[in-house]
């Protein structure tokens, strides 16, 4: 068959093959390495450890602003709920009582900061 009659589809094949090789290299052989990660990307078990550490540090320094700033690094929707749940779970699973208490104290302090709905009496 003449070269011209065979068309140019082989070029597309080459590009597709190249893209596949490129992605294989970029994702499998030599993926981007993350060495400067943020706490939000930590594995769940390490996030739990991070929260315990925040709570232990809070018990030591009593600085709620700092504790909240640290908790916000974990990028969770409701930090109070997460800390309270972890404290309960730790107690239920027989974990360290001191650490569970630290988490409980932090959760309590965070809970007190949540604005409560005001109930006002209306005159009949």
């Amino acid at each position: 068959m003449n070269e011209d009659e065979r068309g140019n589809w082989y070029l597309l094949t080459g590009v597709v093959l190249g893209i596949m090789l490129g992605i294989l290299f970029a994702w499998v052989i030599s993926p981007v390495e993350y060495v400067d990660t943020a706490p939000e990307s930590l594995k769940d078990e390490f996030k739990d450890q991070y929260r315990v550490l925040i709570a232990s540090a809070y018990v030591a320094n009593g600085d709620l602003v700092r504790a909240k700033a640290r908790l916000e690094l974990l990028d969770e929707a409701d930090i109070y709920l997460v800390v309270a749940e972890q404290a309960q779970q730790m107690l239920a699973e027989g974990g360290s009582v001191e650490e569970a208490q630290a988490l409980g104290r932090l959760a309590l302090s965070l809970g007190q900061e949540i604005p409560q709905p005001k109930i006002t009496a209306t005159a009949e």
Partner: peptide, 29 residues
Amino acid sequence: AILIGVALGLLFGWVINPIEYTQTAPNTL
């Protein structure tokens, strides 16, 4: 054509849509 494809693939895999690690350990912080 293959080389152009490889370049496009690397661009996609490293820049446009790199693998994101969401299960990291504290030593990578």
